[in-house]
Design a protein around this nucleic acid. Structure first.
Lengths: 348, 348
DNA sequence: CCGATATGGGAAAGCACTTTCCCAGGCTAG
DNA sequence: CTAGCCTGGGAAAGTGCTTTCCCATATCGG
């Protein structure tokens, strides 16, 4: 077996060094116990000559702990998630954790399946990044799987809504959208519309609700036709904007897309319609996606420290808190006013 | 130990079902051998009651094969990589592989380290996504680590330059840039400049070289001052464009940024300088990044099927070719002409 | 100079599985 | 009626590692 020859084990190392496998093991994971300098050298030499690398799987079985952490995002190609993932991967790498990534397109059933897989892998932790949905049944099933995972000794962390009973990094969607709404009204916008994202997604719902609350502070309401749903994507924004245009009435002063990606879609749709921004309609987004900072006109938005949020999630995995009392780490959003919401006329 | 109680093993299942651990194992991985219906039912029931999940690590140790594949990209927040990763993750997930992701910022030393980690994990495969560098020594060291990995039974796949002696998905950077150059000249552009990316990166070098070759077909050359290096990022493009402006001479007809992200930086710099695009200077990029399709003016570029490339890489992992003869899968780029390169005057 | 205490090495018992090999019982074919 | 074969169950030997426990030697205080 060519295979067999090349697969060198600790036993091979021990044999070649003329020591017991115990001693070889102690040398390889130095620190566990002192080994005489002479034998240690012999073992090291054998390791080099044989090109030995410890089998981490076997080690994990023997010790009962692994360094794997599972991360599930909705869509890694979406800059929102890839930014968070970047922070997560960097921080996890620095802490010697092995990150396994999976994509579960906003489906708690798929997330559940991945948590089950991580449970089978005896992963140290699982991190669920992204909005919860309003499907209570699916959420409960997911929660149960997570409970099984934590009961087994794993940690669970979520980035999104604190609805799973685990440590959670919570972007303040409602507060941010509220602040944005107030700022827009302060600028002079009076008739607002919202491109509201998918119906079931709580992040979208929170942002709409927060926006609505912010407007309410100025006694401004949103009528049904002024809230139009669509996918959380560029095309979703494009189409949602389309249906606002198709409705025919007078254009709103300002359109709030619940994320930047949709806002860009809306900009594209308006450009296609020959409507200038902000001259014809103002547009605002949410997230402050880095790659989207150079669109024209520059987009008013609510900045979320995405990369930082990923790092925070990674920290939570290590910092073991008291069980039963999940920690909640709120992350405020910062309103960034740019050209896309300059009012048609300065406020009277 | 609360821990001990909740960690249920196959032995526990066997005990509860009143069968041997052998039988329990056979039932759990059904298919290995027939088991009487009666006992099978008892085992299944025990599994359910105990909430048993097989320990995949232990299984991997026992069987000697794992389903893990390691992926290393330069920067997951970069849309180029996140798109490829998206394809990879989707395809790998469909094939029941577990994807572990790491970021190694264009450093072959870091990649080497990760390959070593995957070797220790006894991963089934490792996929290196991204440009090789011109550091031959580092590349050799990486090659050696990969060789050790494959010798051990792992597969290795690369997306980039076919320089590692492993199966490789090769974007045709030179050919694409060449085609772009010819198209730009055909449009009437005569004085060209290149924002060339980082010096050591072969992908950047290939694109510059291909562009140069394309121009040569029209007997047009690039003088030293017309090729300026910079980071493979938005800011890199911004600064490279800055130094072209700072040089003072007459503006080139068209600037080719070797990737879209840099092109967007260049657009931003030109906007800051009050130079219109394409009125003042034309700008072209490379990659056709999805999130950047809506910048203004729409960017002329060379489209690479990024997501598809990720899927192809995942396929290569499974399709085992003959050893010693690494496969090379070229991926052509498609020139996409958009508004950013409309010439100042129509060609005479 | 002797018993107490480090010190460092190794045998063996895990860890949670798979898989080979053996065996008992039931069936069929001759 | 019996040799031979299939079926399904289990004991036990791996898989590659860690860790406990035991033991021989060396060191040290009194």
């Amino acid at each position: 077996m060519e295979d067999a020859r090349t697969r060198v084990t600790l036993q091979d190392v021990a044999d070649r060094a003329g020591v017991s496998i115990t001693t070889a093991s102690r040398v390889v994971n130095d620190g566990s116990r002192r080994v005489g300098a002479h034998l240690a050298r012999r073992v090291h030499q054998a390791v080099d000559e044989l090109g030995y690398t410890a089998n981490l799987q076997a080690r994990a079985v023997a010790t009962g702990r692994s360094s794997m952490v599972g991360v599930v995002v909705h869509d890694i190609a979406d800059p929102y998630f890839s930014s968070i993932a970047a922070g997560l991967i960097e921080a996890a790498g620095a802490r010697q954790m092995l990150v396994c990534l999976s994509a579960a397109p906003a489906s708690e059933a798929a997330e559940r399946e991945y948590v089950a897989l991580m449970r089978a892998q005896r992963a140290r932790a699982v991190i669920l990044v992204g909005s919860r949905t309003d499907d209570a049944a699916a959420r409960a099933a997911l929660g149960e799987e997570i409970a099984a995972f934590t009961r087994q000794g794993g940690r669970a962390v979520c980035v999104g809504q604190p609805l799973l009973g685990v440590d959670t990094i919570v972007p303040e969607n409602a507060a941010g959208a509220g602040a944005l709404a107030r700022a827009l009204v302060a600028l002079g916008h009076r008739r607002l519309a919202v491109l509201a994202g998918p119906r079931g997604l709580l992040t979208a719902q929170d942002r709409v609700a927060g926006f609505r609350a912010g407007l309410a502070a100025w006694s401004i309401g949103l009528r049904p036709g002024e809230v139009v749903h669509g996918a959380f994507t560029r095309d979703g924004g494009y189409e949602a904007m389309s249906s606002i245009l198709a409705a025919g009435g007078p254009l709103p002063d300002c359109v709030f897309a619940v994320n930047d990606v949709m806002a860009v879609g809306a900009l594209a749709r308006l450009r296609a319609a020959g409507i200038s921004v902000p001259g014809g309609v103002a547009v605002a987004g949410f997230d402050d996606i880095l790659t989207l900072r150079d669109v024209t006109p520059p987009l008013t938005t609510v900045r979320l420290p995405l990369k930082r949020m990923g790092e925070m999630a990674a920290s939570l995995v290590l910092a073991d808190g008291e069980p039963g009392r999940p920690r909640v780490v709120p992350v405020p959003g910062e309103v960034i006013m740019r050209d896309s919401t300059i009012p048609r006329l300065p406020p009277a």
